[in-house]
Design a protein around this nucleic acid. Sequence first.
DNA 1: ATGACACTATTTTAGTGA
Length: 262
Amino acid sequence: MRIATWNVNGLRARIDYIVHWLKSREPDVVGMQELKVTDDEFPHEPFNDLGYTVITHGQKGWNGVAIASRLPIEATDRGLPGEADAGARLIRGRIAGTGGIGEVSFATAYCPNGKDIGHADFPVKLKWYDGLRDYLAGVDGGGPFLIGGDFNVVPEPVDCWRGAAADGTIFCTVDERGRYQALLDCGLVDLYRRVEPDKQAFSWWDYRGGAFHRGMGLRIDMLLGNEALAKRVKDVVIDRAYRYKKDGLTSSDHVPVYADLD
DNA sequence: ATGACACTATTTTAGTGA
């Protein structure tokens, strides 16, 4: 099973680019964030044409999450309990098993940005993370569970192009890193770090100032699995080839991250 | 120090993103 997370930055603007990636990488499941589209206006046809069904939790203008799957999928949660005011940021589905892996519970999340330390949105971000921790503390029923998303936190200095020089700035504060660690303390493993313990690899680069070509990125898009899932991981790819234009189409500022499970 | 790029609706400028 190949399963992915991707902040697409505008699903309608990105749809042709997404189709290019789906045809190339052939994931079984992809959780997408920052759709910026309502459920009513979600374009299902391009996904259906490639054999995917999509469950959505969107809203007008901002945020929005969805899961596309070519294995049978059933939505089990829409929205983070108690955090609806923060926007449509979480969806979870039950995916039929395939190959050596049984049924998988997969959630995708778009964690709040926080804007800046001192901004009113910053404590809102921390509170949302507390809600996510409480949610994740209750999900492990023993079967494979995975949450993939844009966490808007840089886990460690190596995950930032500026390294430890960024410590204390937005995404790199003790408060945010502590909240992120609290998710792992629910029994989850960062799948990329399981296969690449020390390597620096980024999943996001600013559109501005040639940041991508200058290596000025962050790793903020992660796949976090419980042990039942993590022990099935064969490989994890941060797909930086999809930060380039494809057939003249503009990429998201985030790249897809996918794991291959057996 | 600032802006830079891309998206959407609050649309021809502003707000957001990270």
